[in-house]
Lab assay of single mutants.
Amino acid sequence: DIEITTNGEEDAKRVIKELQKRNLEYHIEVHGNQWVIKVR
Rank of each mutant, 00 (worst) to 15 (best):
K21D: 10
T5G: 03
A12W: 04
V36K: 04
K38M: 10
R40D: 09
T6M: 12
A12L: 13
R22F: 07
T5Y: 14
E18D: 08
E10G: 07
H27F: 14
N23A: 07
D1L: 14
R22A: 10
T6K: 03
E29M: 06
E25W: 08
Q20T: 09
H31G: 03
V36A: 01
L24W: 06
I4L: 06
I2F: 15
N7I: 13
L19K: 01
E3Q: 12
R14H: 07
E25Q: 12
Y26V: 05
L24D: 02
E25G: 07
R22W: 07
R14L: 10
E29C: 15
Q20G: 05
N7R: 10
H27W: 14
V30P: 02
E3S: 13
E18Y: 09
H31Y: 07
I28N: 00
I16N: 00
N7K: 09
H31I: 14
V15F: 06
K17P: 01
H27M: 13
E29Q: 08
D1I: 14
A12K: 03
R40W: 07
L19F: 03
T5M: 12
R22V: 05
K17T: 09
K13Q: 12
K13D: 06
E3V: 15
E9D: 05
I4D: 00
I16K: 01
D11L: 09
I28W: 03
H27R: 11
E9P: 13
E10A: 12
E10P: 04
E18C: 15
D11A: 13
E9R: 10
T6A: 13
T5P: 05
T6D: 01
H31Q: 11
E9F: 13
K13W: 14
E29W: 03
D1H: 13
V30R: 09
E3A: 10
G8W: 06
L19Q: 01
L24H: 03
I2V: 10
K17E: 13
Q20P: 01
V15I: 15
R22S: 07
T6R: 05
L24A: 05
E18Q: 10
N23C: 07
E3M: 14
I37H: 00
R40P: 11
R14I: 11
I37R: 00
G32H: 03
H27K: 12
E18W: 12
G32Q: 03
V39K: 00
E3W: 15
V15Q: 02
Q34T: 07
E25Y: 09
K13G: 07
V39T: 03
E10K: 11
V30W: 06
V36D: 01
G8I: 08
E18F: 07
I28E: 01
K17F: 07
R40G: 10
I4G: 01
K13M: 15
T6P: 05
I4A: 01
V30N: 04
E29L: 06
E25D: 11
I16L: 07
V36F: 05
Q20Y: 03
Q20C: 10
R22T: 05
K13S: 08
E18P: 00
V15H: 04
I37L: 01
E29K: 04
R14W: 13
K21L: 12
E10D: 10
N33Q: 06
V36Q: 03
K38D: 02
R40V: 15
D11K: 06
G32M: 03
W35M: 13
D1G: 12
L24T: 03
H31T: 10
H31D: 09
N7E: 12
H27Q: 13
W35I: 15
T5N: 06
T5Q: 09
V30H: 06
G8P: 02
G8N: 15
V39H: 01
E29R: 04
Q20N: 10
E9T: 05
L19D: 00
R14G: 06
D11Y: 07
K13T: 09
H31W: 06
Q34F: 11
K38N: 05
H27A: 12
Q34V: 09
L19H: 00
T6I: 15
L24P: 01
K13P: 01
D1W: 15
I37D: 03
I28Q: 01
R40I: 15
N33H: 06
R40L: 15
K38F: 09
E10N: 08
N7L: 12
D11F: 09
I4N: 00
